[in-house]
Design a binder for these strands. Sequence first.
DNA 1: CGGCATCCGGGAAGATACTG
DNA 2: CAGTATCTTCCCGGATGCCG
Lengths: 233, 233
Amino acid sequence: MKLQQITKKKNVPSHRSYDDACGIAHALDLIGERWALLVMRELLLGPKRFSDLRESLPGISANVLTQRLEGLEQAGLLVKRKLPPPAASQVYELTQWGYESESIICDMGRWAARSPSHDPTLPVSPVSIILSMRTMFDATRTLGIDARVGFQFGYENFVARVLEEQLHISRAPVEGADAIFTGTARYLAAAIYGGVPLAALEKKGALTVAGDRTLAERYLTLFVLPPKVKPTG
Amino acid sequence: MKLQQITKKKNVPSHRSYDDACGIAHALDLIGERWALLVMRELLLGPKRFSDLRESLPGISANVLTQRLEGLEQAGLLVKRKLPPPAASQVYELTQWGYESESIICDMGRWAARSPSHDPTLPVSPVSIILSMRTMFDATRTLGIDARVGFQFGYENFVARVLEEQLHISRAPVEGADAIFTGTARYLAAAIYGGVPLAALEKKGALTVAGDRTLAERYLTLFVLPPKVKPTG
DNA sequence: CGGCATCCGGGAAGATACTG
DNA sequence: CAGTATCTTCCCGGATGCCG
């Protein structure tokens, strides 16, 4: 049997809609499909390439990632951009409106972290742990700190600025930071939220600290998870 | 209680997980499946029965609703409760933690309402329009109002209390309210957000107003949608 | 190598019918 | 009213391959 000659060249995802005027339902039409919100998460701290996204989202397959990027672009949440030569590679970048979803997405994370079934020992992406710092930061613990702390997760580098009871953290080269963590996001999470002593992680070679070690230890205490809910609600 | 023997008879949801320690990913493990968040939405203003939920969520099928209710109960977000006799019917009610998702869910709705592809003329459930009032309420427009406004959507009744630049709205009998709207949520939405004149809706028999008509007209102006994003982000 | 399209198996969602 | 059983459809996930 001959294929339908309709071949739109682009597959029409049919976008199963809720057909509901409620803004919440529309939000799900935009970002409710599997993986969509995690793609957004990975872009919240700046543009990424296709393969960077794949690496940060273990379990997503290439075709699904393609579909999500198409959907999010069509929704107006991100744009496909070509970097100027050299390195004329393609990146995906959130629009202004896309970036404005950050507070909602992070609030969701904070809310879900109270779940009894939440397992903080699973792997995390670099972006996840950095966003968690913005989310779980406790300003009351910063008394007197004025410092820059760097993070090196492979090619993904970030710098946190702690000053006047505020935290600003974003992508930046770590050179010149007062303390620098190097390793994987997962082990840094173990140090911050898992209560694993820094010395133990260093001994394992999982995480290394350069610069002001006392500052590094202190920095780890600035973040606290919200209290768990009782299993019986 | 040999739980293990149930393995073949009961459906195993398998709960396709993201296996990611990030709170955002865990949130999606909890409420990321299709329809789950809309079930939560429908329960945000109080318990509902199975068939009430079906009626409020046109398009959901009975088996999917059953699965979502099971999943949300297992997650600790709602409990299945039997009303005391008489009317010993079964209802689903959010837990404390479940109710605490309201602000996040509503923020999502406000964020998504800015979408260029949002169509406010689609049908809405009574709960949706009431939640939208909480979300889109503009306190600066209430000068001098001290009133109770009732809403009758079939068997779902609500009362809004406007006082001192605040809005409190919840399920309650409409008796004694200064103005009472009766009709469908969809037409009330057309009056509030669609700019359709109240008189036109009354003429069609889509919406009726009892009591203080001037107050009713004024009330409709208290809610404003956020500005749309430009299609090119 | 990055960015897709295509084919396929398994499983979730959708629709309908049926039961206590 | 409150679901269960069954069948179909379609999405997701994995593999392969094309093409610049």
